[in-house]
């Protein structure tokens, strides 16, 4: 069952082709909830990637040991451990980020992206391959969260990473920092990505070039 792709493809696939948010629509809860500012998106992406990497490391190492029947229970305990580690880390060293992300850090434990990668990949592949896969997926996740955060922060607050870039003439679109703004922006981003990936257009591109 183990993957036969080249190591490079294993790493790259999560960033665009199998991007957890854009292609698989996984982990939408944090994607929609915390991306009202680029900083929050980045912090959430990094925390999720940390959990993903460490759980993949542990699960791929233990994969031959864990009996099939209790694997989900085992995975969840491992994931929850690292989520708690990340949560405590933020609370101890970055209290302001921890305060602004609120309950969403503990909620990483139910992010389907993480359990999904363990079930689909780390439990069937070696440590190195699993780490590459997780790193790619994590970077893809961070990428989407930061892009969403940047768009929503510019339109919703007139700033980017906390620095005001639009002058007084700009009236922030309040909707962008509210949940509907998250749905709208994500929907438009996915539509654009699908349009770009559209096989008929890809053929057109090849024909032209």
């Amino acid at each position: 069952m183990s993957s036969t792709l080249s190591l490079k493809t294993e790493f790259i696939k999560g960033i665009w082709k199998e991007n957890p948010v854009m292609a698989s629509l996984l982990g939408l809860c944090p994607t929609l909830a915390v991306t009202n500012a680029a900083n929050n998106g980045l912090a959430m992406g990094l925390a999720t990637t940390f959990v993903l990497l460490s759980s993949s490391l542990m699960i791929s190492a233990l994969r031959n040991l864990i009996p099939h029947q209790v694997r989900i229970a085992g995975y969840i305990v491992i994931i929850a451990t690292f989520v708690t580690v990340a949560d405590r880390f933020l609370a101890a060293y970055f209290p302001s980020i921890s305060a602004s992300l609120g309950p969403y850090i503990p909620l990483i434990v139910v992010n389907c992206l993480i359990l999904g990668r363990q079930e689909a990949f780390s439990s069937r592949n070696g440590i190195g391959r699993s780490l590459l896969d997780s790193l790619g997926m994590g970077i893809g996740f961070i990428f989407v969260l930061v892009v969403l955060g940047i768009i929503r922060e510019i339109l919703g607050s007139g700033s980017i990473f906390g620095f005001a870039i639009l002058g007084d003439w700009f009236t922030p679109w309040m909707v962008m920092i509210l949940p509907p703004g998250a749905f709208l922006t994500l929907g438009i981003l996915i539509a654009l990505a699908n349009w770009y990936n559209d096989p008929s257009r890809a053929k057109e591109r090849r024909a032209v070039s």
Partner: peptide, 20 residues
């Protein structure tokens, strides 16, 4: 196996807790 995992997890958390 589950005992091993929970012990491991408990150990990590206990250690991390004393630091943070």
């Amino acid at each position: 196996v589950l005992t091993l995992i929970t012990v491991l997890s408990g150990g990590i958390l206990a250690g991390w807790d004393t630091i943070t």
